[in-house]
Each structure stands twice: as structure tokens, then as C-alpha cells.
Write a protein that binds this DNA or RNA. Structure first.
Length: 852
RNA sequence: GGGGACGUGGCGGAACGGUAGACGCACCGGACUUAAAAUCCGUUGGCCGCAAGGCCGUGAGGGUUCGAGUCCCUCCGUCCCUACCA
């Protein structure tokens, strides 16, 4: 027997696939289409097994669907703009473009080595002018549609990266990449009007029935629709403004209002701050504490009494003070609220601190209105309204409707829907991104670059040695002429958020070389993506932006679908144990040896035998040095073993822990499979008919269970069924089965293994003497008659406890089973002396006897 | 504070409301070998028992059901997301 040699076999088959160009997808086909896409990688320069798992999953789906007769599109690209290239440029003085293209070349080779069934002819990179130039083209179209606008406003400024961050990119008051405390700065920014689509994006979630509920919930919460009332309070006495508008979702509690509060950056507050330095000082102080650290965050309500009063709209005899409060946000609703301390915890905290009245207006069921009052906990539960004039006695929802109707009738308010979602700030002050294709002209203002001047390319000699935007300080790049009047003008030096790059790449793959941004015919054929696979960390931002851009492009006539991804799967990460010396220094897995002493595992430094601390399994990261590269595995076991293992141990949506033992298990499976094909089947001896039938049945059962496991994304279960099937095929060698049956089993085995270990499968297929390559072979079908057993073993329960079993023909009726049951001497013995009350028979599954 | 997920052997994990622990890892025993590695075969939830067999067992407690890891309620724990959103 020849040992399976992946180092020889794997490259040979990859070359054969390349040679035959087997993974090229043609748009025109009589077959049904299937578009599989994994989230494209950032070209960091090195592939780790986390990538391998992501792409292996997509590859299983792609190869499976191809075998099942689909016309499969499975492309690959590069999310190639972004900060790491700039960091490399500023730290090491390399050219970001050269650095990126170099990394792409390296990673392409590593990906190819995984044996993925990718149509490389469609490869694209977002940093390629051929790509971002088309992005500029549709950006200008959205601009014409009014979906792009500039607005001056407070933005999140990252002082380390010297750039503006979207709200979503600020985590706990820090920049998501740099970790630096974010400052608030006033700048003119570019925005995409995603809020125009808020309702539609929310609505569309209902149609995405092949998305995880979790992701849909996260997007729903992110859009954050609420129904409420906008109402305007009139000032009492001398008034600086005509009135003060607030937003509430609890108009039923209006009679419990004891104060109004505006955000520190509300126009009213800014107005007052200009006149009164004490107000200015308060606002400044609040802003400093701002949205920062965790302690401050959960903490103290702070307020400033403006001295202004407004009149209660339902009771003109009541006057309500107006405060500036740190917990009111300018960018939600209208930046002003009324406080009803009895029924909102934040308002209550504020009222207690500043000694404002607390009037309950919702009476919990069973409470006495004469004695009910609120102490330190606001009452937010159900009840009936009281202390509220015309609302008295109503349930909360009814009272909301009545209050809104009254406010509308009296002309001071309007029922309103508000979304938490805000417009997408897309400008970045970065040099390594897609330039925003507009020109600033002193006469004409902001002028789009004319389409025939696209792409607006980045200069090749950007200087990243200083922080800030290298485009802005480039000597010549920004100087141009106005497309409208021809006078000297300056280019916009902001570039687009990289989330823009990734929000349409799936629409480019159908024809990655098209002159237009999107080849409509090709996109109409391929879209939507049938199965999209990626990390759950993109559940909100990337997926929401892609859904928005798809809608915008559809409205522009470039696409026909509203939802880009019909099916979504979010996969888990690959983790690895961490190792560190007593001194705290992290160690690479390769430098550590593990020894087992009884039940305990101990780690030692390979060279010196120094004892090492074994830490938790964590996401592979360079900083903890627990990274395993697929190449390391490929050198020893081949990539098939690596592919098999990352899919086998854990369900795909969960994290998988990389262990050397696990890979060895996969390697053993590969060798066992190979051994079956390498072995010549013993043909002497009498044919064992029963064993032959048993193997046939096992073959068809394996086909069915592997097929169903792949369809249900239960790759770990599919691999478990493969292990079982290989064991059965091996054991069948002990008896003499007919050559046809053995051949059927082996032909099925090769094809079932193919999506997971494609190189091995090809080698087996050839060894079997089948013509052509297995990538062209059809997926095996199972015969329902062979899958069903003739006879079944039914466990017998007495009063719910297993007490024995009987054999019954498959499909036996309840009456048949009962007859068999009472005919069984073992069972009869166990039932002796008991009165049988009831016999429950679940056909082909179980029998339960209720007896006393 | 809000939302969600999860909790099963030594470990990763299986299990349409129907024999809990498939499959893999690890461990232990055996075969092969001068020996080891590799490979192959076998054992392995706990307790009692020579055995046949019995009892207990899916975070804790209750409930629904002929039957619950699975459904419902309460609690405990872990993880993730989100957060002064009016």
C-alpha cells in the first residue's frame, strides 16, 4: 500500500483544474444559477486558518451546488483600501499601492493553495482605478439623485488617525481602530442619505427569511423606529425663540411633565451660552466629560437651569422650567425632551438630583391613587392614566392616541415616526481611499467631475510621513480646473469610507470587466447572492450599507434587486490556545511541546524544557502569537486535512478551537479513505449477499445524511457521517461483497468527500477508473427504498423508562407492534403483575406502555 | 439599563418532543514491532453488582406530557451585541 502523499497529489490536481479552467462561470446557461460569496478579505499579506475556514465553507457550498447541477458563480476580490497600508507607509516608508498589490499577490497564492473552486477571472481589488473609478461614476449618479449631501456638523475626530469617524466607528468614546479618545469637532462632511431608506430597510428585513434572526434583530434595533409626538411648548414671559419643540414616545405622560431639557449642543443652549459665560462653562464641562469612559458614562446626570419657563400645552396655568441636560442627545429626535420623572428612570434621577416635582400619572393596577407615589424607581409598567384631566382612566396606548389627536387638533404637535438610524458620513481625510470625484470652484461651488474625466486617480507619490491627509498637502494633485466654468479650482481631497467600497462589489462580479459600473444583464442573471458567508461582526454596518446601496442603485436603474443577499450565514472564528512564559512573554505554538501526564496537559518550551503556562483559547491574533497559518499545516498534512478539520469539530456558526490533535484526526480520515481506494478488493470466496445488501444500504444512507447535513450547513455532522461511512466500507472488506456494490460505495464515498477534501477526491476518482474529473461528476442520488430499513429495533418503555426492545418490520402499524410486544417473553416478564392502562406506539420509533 | 445566545462526559460536540452522549480528541488496554513512531482492534458518564441487571444523570428548582437535553415559568452562571435613543 502506498501512503497518500498530499504534497505530490494536491498541486497536481490544482494544476489540472487550472488547465481545464473548470471553475469559470458563464453567465449564459440553461442551468439554474447559484451565486456563492464569502466576504472578501483585507489583503493583510498573510492568510490564517480563520480565513481558511471562511473560504472552505463557501467552497463546500460551491462544489456541492456545482455537483447538484447548478451554474455556480464563486468569485474572489480584495477589500484593498484602508488604514493598514497607510500605517505601513508611514512606519516603513513603503508605497501603499505597492505594499497592497504585493500582499494581494501573496494572499492570492495562499488562497489558491487551499484548492478553492473560485473563478479567478473575475478577481477585483477595490484599490484598482478600474474598480473605484466605477464607484465614482455611480457616486455621481447618487449625487444627482440628491442622495449625497454636505453638511457642517459636529463630527467624531480621531486625534491619532487624524480622521473623522462615523458614530458606528466610535466604541465607548474611542476610535474603533486607534483606540484613541474621540474629540468632537466641527467640519463639513459628506453624507449619504441612508435615512431616506430607513423604512424600506426595516421592511425588507421581513423578506430575508434565510438570514439569521439575530442579524435581523440587530439591524432592526439599529434602525430603531419609534412612534411618538413632536410638540412645541410656548415660552412664558419674554421669549428668546417662538417656542421649543420636543419629541416624546410617551405623550400619555404629558401631565406628569416637570421639566424640559435640551441637549448641550441644542441651538437654544448655544444661544444662551453666547450671552452667559456660566452657561458656556457648563456646556464645555459637559462636553468634556461627554461620551467618554465607562465610569462617567453610566454616571451623574448634570443639568443647568436656564431660568426660562414654558407653558403646559394642555394646562395654560402650569409653567415648566427649561434645563440644559447632559443626558439629552442632539442627534436623536429633536434634541429636546420633556421630563416625566415618575415614569422614566433617567428623568427621575435628574429630578431627584435637582429637586424637581415627581407627579405620577400612570396608576398600576390595584394601587390606590390617593397613596401611590414614586420613590427611587420610576414606574414604567402598565396601568391607567390619572392626574391627567381628559386622559384620566385611559390605558396607556389609548391615552397616547388621544393625546396625539388633541395635540394635532390644537395645532401644537404632530404624531411622528423617528428613526435612530442617522445618515452615513462617508468622508475620510485619508490618502489611501477612493477620491470623492468633485471639484471646488470659487464661482460655481461644488461641481461634479464630468463622467468622461473619471476615474479621478490617486497620485502615485503620496507622502505618508506626516499625520493628516496626504492628498490635501500633495503639491499638484488637487489643482485642476472647474468642469463648469474652466477656472482654476481644487479637487475634493476627502476619500470615501471603505464601507462604500464593499457595499457593491458583489454587483461588480457578474461582469468584473464591464465598462459601466454594473453590467445590468449579467447582474440581473446572477443577483441576488444566493449564499453570503462572513463574520457576524459585519452584522450591522457592512450588511446595512450594502442593502442601502443596492436600493439606491436599483432606484437609479443599475440593478433590479433591492436585497443583495438572499441567504446569509455568519460563521464563527478559529481560536487557539495561548502560551506564555512565566515572565509573561507570549509564545508561538510551534515553539511549545505539550506532554500529557495522566489527565493533565503540561506545556514546555521545546528548546529548554522551561515550563509554560497554557492559557485560554482565543481568537488568533498576532499580539498573542497564537496564529496558525494554513501553509504550516499544508506542509505536513496537506490542505485537505486542514479544510476537513476546520469544518469538522464545531458547528460552523460557533467558534472552533484549532488543536493539533484535531488535524491529526482529519489526516487519519484522509488516509483511511485513500486506503479503501488503494486496496484491491478481495474477489475470492463466495459472495455474501446479506453483507452486499447491507453495504448498499449504508451507502445510500450515507448519501442522504451527508447531503442533508450540507444543505443544512451542518458541516460538522456531514464530516461525522463520512467517518462512519468510511468505517463501514472498511469493515465490509471482512466479507465478500459484489464488486458492483463495492464500486458503488467507493464512487459515492469519493463524491461525498469531494466538497471537503477535493484533491483527495480527485485522486480517488481517478484510482477508481472513473472518467474525467470529479469536479464534473454529478452528486450521487439515494434510493429511498434502500435508505429505509426493513426491520427496526423499537425501544420499549414502561412508564417512560427504557425496559427492553423489540424488532418490528419497518412501517408496522400500532396494532402490529402491540401484538409483537405482548408476544415478547422478556417484555411479558417485565409487565407481570402490572395493569396495562395504555400503549403508545410511535411507528418506527418507540413504544411506551403505561401500567400500574 | 435594553436585546440576544448559550449551559450535555476529561475536552470539542451529536440528538424531527421518542434508546442522551453520534462523530472526533484525549486517556486506558490489546495486536504488530527488538523497541518506538505510525497503523489496526477494543474499553471509557457516575454509583452499586462476580454477573444478569439496577439506580442516578443534559446548570438549579417547578410545570406541561404516556414520554422533556428539547416546550413553559422562576432562578443561577457564561458569552455576544447595544446603550443616557426620550
Amino acid at each position: 500500500m502506498v501512503r497518500y502523499n498530499p504534497k505530490e497529489v494536491e498541486p497536481r490536481w490544482r494544476a489540472a483544474w487550472d488547465e481545464a479552467d473548470v471553475f469559470r462561470a458563464e453567465t449564459d446557461s440553461s442551468k439554474p444559477k447559484y451565486y456563492v460569496l464569502e466576504m472578501f478579505p483585507y489583503p493583510s499579506g498573510s492568510l490564517h486558518v480563520g480565513h481558511a475556514r471562511n473560504y472552505a465553507m463557501g467552497d463546500v457550498v460551491a462544489r456541492f451546488k456545482r455537483a447538484r447541477g447548478f451554474n455556480v458563480l464563486h468569485p474572489m476580490g480584495w477589500d484593498a483600501f484602508g488604514l493598514p497600508a497607510e500605517n505601513a507607509a508611514s512606519e516603513r516608508g513603503v508605497d501603499p499601492a505597492a505594499w497592497t498589490w504585493d500582499n494581494i499577490a501573496k494572499m492570492r497564492e495562499e488562497l489558491k493553495r487551499l484548492g478553492l473552486s473560485i473563478d479567478w477571472s473575475r478577481e477585483l481589488a477595490t484599490c484598482d482605478p478600474a474598480y473605484y473609478g466605477r464607484q465614482q461614476a455611480w457616486f455621481l449618479k447618487l449625487m444627482e439623485r440628491g442622495l449625497v449631501y454636505r453638511k457642517e456638523g459636529l463630527v467624531n475626530w480621531d486625534p491619532v488617525d487624524m480622521t473623522v469617524l462615523a458614530n458606528e466607528q466610535v466604541i465607548d468614546g474611542r476610535g474603533w481602530r486607534s483606540g484613541a479618545m474621540v474629540e468632537r469637532r466641527k467640519l463639513t462632511q459628506w453624507f449619504l442619505r441612508i435615512t431616506d431608506y430607513a423604512e424600506d430597510l426595516l421592511d425588507g428585513l421581513k423578506t430575508l427569511d434565510r438570514w439569521p434572526d439575530k442579524v435581523r434583530t440587530m439591524q432592526e434595533n439599529w434602525i430603531g423606529k419609534s412612534q411618538g409626538l413632536r410638540l412645541t411648548f410656548q415660552f412664558a414671559g419674554e421669549s428668546p425663540e417662538s417656542g421649543l419643540e420636543v419629541y416624546t414616545t410617551r405623550p400619555d405622560t404629558l401631565f406628569g411633565a416637570s421639566f424640559l431639557a435640551v441637549a448641550p449642543d441644542h441651538p437654544l443652549a448655544e444661544n444662551l451660552a453666547q450671552k452667559d459665560p456660566r452657561v458656556a462653562a457648563f456646556v464645555a464641562e459637559v462636553r468634556r466629560g461627554g461620551t467618554s469612559e465607562a465610569e462617567i458614562e453610566s454616571a451623574e446626570k448634570q443639568g443647568w437651569d436656564t431660568g426660562l419657563k414654558v407653558i403646559h400645552p394642555f394646562d395654560s396655568t402650569r409653567q415648566i422650567p427649561v434645563w440644559i441636560a447632559n443626558f439629552v442627545l442632539m442627534d436623536y429626535g429633536v434634541g429636546a425632551i420633556f421630563g416625566c420623572p415618575a415614569h422614566d428612570q433617567r428623568d427621575l434621577d435628574f429630578a431627584r438630583k435637582y429637586d424637581l416635582p415627581v407627579t405620577p400619572v400612570v396608576l398600576p393596577v390595584g394601587e390606590d391613587p390617593a397613596v401611590f407615589h414614586v420613590k427611587q424607581e420610576a414606574y414604567v409598567g402598565p396601568g391607567r392614566i390619572f392626574n391627567s384631566a381628559f386622559l384620566d382612566g385611559l390605558e396607556i396606548e389609548a391615552a397616547k392616541a388621544v393625546a396625539i389627536a388633541r395635540a394635532e387638533a390644537d395645532g401644537f404637535g404632530k404624531g411622528t415616526t423617528v428613526y435612530r438610524l442617522r445618515d452615513w458620513g462617508v468622508a475620510r481625510q485619508r490618502g489611501w481611499g477612493c477620491p470623492i470625484p468633485v471639484v471646488h470652484c470659487s464661482d460655481c461651488g461644488v461641481v461634479p467631475v464630468s463622467p468622461d474625466q473619471l476615474p479621478v486617480e490617486l497620485p502615485v507619490d503620496l507622502d505618508f510621513s506626516k499625520p493628516g491627509n496626504p492628498l490635501a498637502r500633495h503639491a499638484t494633485w488637487k489643482h485642476t480646473s472647474c468642469p463648469k466654468c474652466g477656472a482654476a479650482a481644487e479637487r475634493e481631497t476627502d476619500t470615501l469610507d471603505t464601507f462604500v467600497d464593499s457595499s457593491w462589489y458583489f454587483a461588480r462580479f457578474p461582469n468584473a470587466g464591464a465598462a459601466e459600473p454594473i453590467d445590468k444583464a449579467a447582474a440581473d442573471y446572477w443577483l441576488p447572492v444566493d449564499q453570503y458567508i462572513g463574520g457576524v461582526e459585519h452584522a450591522v454596518l457592512h450588511l446595512l450599507y450594502a442593502r442601502f446601496v443596492t436600493r439606491a442603485l436599483a432606484d437609479e436603474g443599475l440593478l433590479s434587486v433591492k436585497e443583495p443577499f438572499a441567504g446569509l450565514f455568519t460563521q464563527g472564528m478559529v481560536t487557539h490556545e495561548t502560551y506564555r512564559r512565566q515572565s509573561g512573554e507570549w509564545l508561538e505554538p510551534g515553539s511549545v511541546v505539550i506532554r500529557t501526564e495522566g489527565a493533565h496537559r503540561r506545556a514546555f518550551l521545546a528548546d529548554t524544557d522551561e515550563p509554560i503556562v497554557i492559557g485560554e483559547a482565543e481568537k488568533m491574533s498576532k499580539s498573542k502569537r497564537n496564529v496558525v497559518a494554513p501553509a504550516d499545516i499544508a506542509d505536513v498534512y496537506g490542505v485537505d486535512a486542514a479544510r476537513l478539520f476546520v469544518l469538522s469539530d464545531s458547528p460552523p456558526e460557533r467558534d472552533v478551537q484549532w488543536t493539533s490533535g484535531g488535524v491529526e484526526g482529519a489526516w487519519r480520515l484522509i488516509n483511511r479513505v485513500w486506503a479503501e481506494f488503494d486496496e484491491t478488493s478481495p474477489s475470492d470466496g463466495e459472495i455474501d449477499v446479506a453483507a452486499s445488501l447491507a453495504l448498499r444500504r449504508a451507502t445510500h444512507k450515507a448519501i442522504k445524511s451527508v447531503t442533508e447535513a450540507i444543505e443544512g450547513f451542518r458541516f460538522n455532522s456531514a464530516v461525522a457521517r463520512l467517518y462512519e461511512f468510511v468505517a463501514i466500507v472498511r469493515n465490509a472488506r471482512a466479507s465478500t461483497v459484489t464488486p458492483e456494490v463495492r464500486r458503488e460505495a467507493l464512487a459515492a464515498l469519493a463524491r461525498l468527500v469531494a466538497p471537503f477534501a477535493p484533491h483527495l477526491a480527485e485522486e480517488c476518482w481517478r484510482r477508481l477508473g472513473e472518467g474525467g474529473m470529479i469536479v464534473h461528476a454529478a452528486w450521487p442520488a439515494w434510493d429511498a427504498n434502500l435508505v429505509a430499513d426493513e426491520e427496526r429495533i423499537l425501544p420499549v418503555q414502561i412508564n417512560g423508562k427504557r425496559r427492553g426492545e423489540i424488532r418490528a418490520p419497518s412501517g408496522a402499524t400500532a396494532a402490529d407492534v402491540e401484538a409483537l410486544l405482548f408476544a415478547d417473553p422478556e417484555i411479558a416478564k417485565k409487565l407481570e403483575g402490572l395493569t396495562i392502562r395504555k400503549v403508545i406506539v410511535v411507528p418506527d420509533r418507540i413504544v411506551n406502555v403505561v401500567a400500574a
